[in-house]
Simulated assay, not measured.
Amino acid sequence: MSDLALGDVAPDFSLPRDGGGTVSLSDFRGRPVVLYFYPKDDTTACTAESIAFTALLPEFEAAGAAVIGISPDSVARHDKFAKKHSLSVVLGSDEETEVANLYGVWKEKSMYGRTFMGVVRTTFLIAADGRIARIWPKVKVAGHAEEVLAAVKAL
């Protein structure tokens, strides 16, 4: 597990995605990428976060940025999640948690006195040169997509 810092080159990856095919970070070289890691499809906060990024997607695209959500859910779950909530952001399936480990977001968590491994909700803004421009650790969903959009526009 690595702890990435501002200015580091964002690790490349290739993952199966919703709707079929794959999504790779290198596909977006030359433009900013918002990479948001979330724990699980169709849970309250994850749904709100994905809906917020979808709602602002036209503005992200107008600013030249791509938006990719990544969770350990399967492509089949992503497809169901995207359809149910009319999501238009790309959803990458990281079932083996390789990408979550590369980005240092697969960590020990605890809930109700039980500890387990899981994704810590984190967003990375990757600049057009492939370097990490901003990191939001332990994201609180309310207002987050708007804050990320402002950071994209400020690049």
Rank of each mutant, 00 (worst) to 15 (best):
A82C: 15
K83F: 07
K84A: 15
K84V: 05
H85I: 05
H85W: 13
H85K: 15
S86M: 11
S86H: 15
L87I: 08
L87R: 05
L87G: 08
L87Q: 10
S88D: 15
S88A: 15
S88H: 14
V89W: 00
V89L: 15
V89Y: 02
V89N: 07
V90T: 15
V90G: 02
V90H: 02
V90D: 02
V90R: 08
V90L: 14
G92Y: 06
G92Q: 12
G92S: 11
S93R: 03
S93G: 07
S93D: 05
S93F: 05
S93P: 03
D94R: 02
D94G: 09
D94P: 08
D94E: 09
D94T: 10
E95Y: 01
E95P: 02
E95I: 00
E95W: 00
E96K: 15
T97S: 09
T97A: 12
T97K: 15
T97M: 13
T97L: 06
T97W: 02
T97D: 05
E98A: 15
E98I: 12
E98F: 05
V99M: 01
V99W: 00
V99P: 00
V99A: 00
A100G: 08
A100S: 15
A100N: 01
A100L: 01
N101A: 07
N101T: 14
N101D: 12
L102K: 09
L102V: 00
L102C: 02
L102H: 01
L102W: 00
Y103A: 12
Y103K: 12
G104F: 13
G104D: 12
G104K: 10
G104Y: 14
V105T: 01
W106R: 02
W106Q: 06
K107M: 09
K107N: 11
K107I: 09
K107W: 02
K107F: 02
K107Q: 14
K107G: 04
E108G: 02
E108I: 11
E108K: 13
E108T: 14
E108W: 04
K109P: 04
K109D: 08
S110K: 13
S110P: 05
S110C: 09
S110I: 06
M111R: 14
M111H: 10
M111Q: 12
Y112N: 11
Y112F: 13
Y112Q: 12
Y112C: 04
Y112L: 10
G113K: 10
G113L: 12
R114S: 10
R114A: 09
T115M: 07
T115D: 10
F116K: 08
M117C: 03
M117F: 01
M117T: 01
M117H: 02
M117N: 06
G118N: 10
G118W: 08
G118P: 04
G118F: 08
V119W: 01
V119S: 04
V119Q: 04
V119F: 04
V119P: 00
V120F: 04
V120H: 04
V120W: 05
V120P: 03
V120K: 03
R121E: 03
R121P: 07
R121T: 04
R121G: 02
T122P: 05
T122R: 10
T122H: 08
T122A: 06
T122G: 06
T123K: 07
T123Q: 11
